[in-house]
Design a protein around this nucleic acid. Structure first.
Lengths: 249, 249
DNA sequence: GGGAATGTGGCAAGAATACGCAAAAATGTA
DNA sequence: TACATTTTTGCGTATTCTTGCCACATTCCC
């Protein structure tokens, strides 16, 4: 088993179970605990997980301490949310992923809007529920505790049967060559299906995620219709994406 | 259980109940009181809570002023929640409705418990997600904004396919003759199906709902296996239900 | 005041980790 | 291809962390 492969597996396990034990992993992958520990150290240095005595934890465990960082980009995300909300018109069927940018979009929805929102993300659903006039559809399945989203074959099958007007994805990494990428395999699968089930695909992300990569591929640049960031559309960072035919807002 | 994990659990409990007792925690998490005390010390040093003799208090405890009445009803529901949680054993599949009593049950679940919880209630799912070891399945469908639960043909079909060990229903009205009743037609439908899909049916309600009626019929007394209230089982109010063959806790 | 509960500090066993080192594997270079 | 260099991995040892237990002090409650 390759080192990268091993680390990807560890990361997947962490995102899946919120925790991993060095002893268990070393037994599973049949390498020494030293190797596992070194992997965990590296992943921890990269900010992918939190190393603790005996193993590692997912970041979602202490999002209390992380809130400082998210507050920082809160304003940026509000701008993105407003741009995104402006795309939705009465009567539309809208499919959305989870993520803080999507939450901000939900908060920016005009109260008079009448549309149908479909999502598996629990925080997103909670926001949509606050809205007086929109219809909310929850995708059911096993709940991933760290992603706070429903994940699994059932959810995928359900989304496949949908034909939505718009699909909003909060994304963690986008690159002009590699397209959008993700670090959780299952969430990547979900997003792929959501893209397939929608007429138009809107990607929302703060600018610092632009030109970054994560291990798992979601879609190519050509699959994206609209890209929303907090920057003005004529920012030089966004030029390559406009040239690639994406509508940038 | 990892140290960080344990501390996260303690913190969650503190924020939930505004106080924790060392003795209780040590029993729940199955570690010595020394360990709990050390954890509380550390968390106290980090400013996450306030250490006191015998346990710890939430920091927000100061500015929380309770209205005496609501606390009273809350305490009743906590008692119900604890009785209900005690019924669940490792490996069980548990189907639950929504409602405040069910939420209290979710909060009373021992952290070591490994079981699968299935529900369409969003507040209930949120509570289950806090638990370190239980698997959570969300039933999907249209979201009813006032009931905060997924409702519809899809949800009903999904529940029909389940064969659960236990079904917990928070009920608003129970009567020895008319059985349990409800005031929302769709929720009544859901509860009916949930009863059909479970080996054992547990009804949870505060005693003031006993011998009351609502317009829509859910099930008869004979369909109920266990009835949980905040009262001791030998209370005279409960006598008719025991005579009817229900196990009263 | 007195008994019970709780807290303190020390200690020890066991688990987890850091560190240095060497073998093995991969990579680079002539 | 042959050889040097770097990377990766596993092992032994010393060290640190974690936890439970014990003796004893302190606090709480009646």
């Amino acid at each position: 088993m390759l080192k990268k492969e091993r680390q990807a597996y560890i990361l997947h396990q962490v995102n899946l179970h919120n925790k991993v034990l060095s002893s268990l992993l070393s037994h599973e992958i049949r390498v020494s605990e030293d190797t596992i520990r070194r992997d965990l150290m590296e992943l921890s240095d990269e900010g992918k997980l939190i190393k603790v005595h005996g193993g590692a934890l997912s970041h979602s465990f202490n999002d209390v301490t992380y809130s400082g960082l998210s507050v920082y980009s809160q304003d940026q995300k509000k701008i993105i949310g407003q741009k995104a909300a402006a795309l939705i018109q009465d009567g539309m069927f809208v499919l959305t992923s989870g993520g803080t940018t999507i939450i901000e979009m939900a908060r920016a929805l005009p109260p008079a809007l009448r549309a149908t929102f479909i999502s598996g993300s629990i925080p997103a659903i909670l926001e949509y529920m606050q809205h007086p006039n929109i219809e909310v559809i929850m995708i059911g399945d096993r709940v991933s505790k760290n992603a706070k989203i429903t994940i699994g074959a059932e959810a995928i099958a359900k989304i496949k049967n949908i034909n939505a007007d718009l699909c909003f994805l909060g994304i963690n990494a986008i690159d002009i060559k590699r397209g959008t990428t993700e670090n959780d395999w299952e969430i990547a699968q979900l997003k792929k299906i959501m893209i397939d089930s929608s007429q138009k695909v809107v990607c929302c992300t703060i600018s610092e995620k632009i030109n970054t990569l994560q291990p798992i591929h979601i879609c190519n640049i050509s699959d994206i219709d609209i890209l929303i960031t907090e920057l003005p559309p004529d920012s030089p960072v966004l030029k390559p994406y406009i040239d690639a035919g994406i509508q940038v807002l």
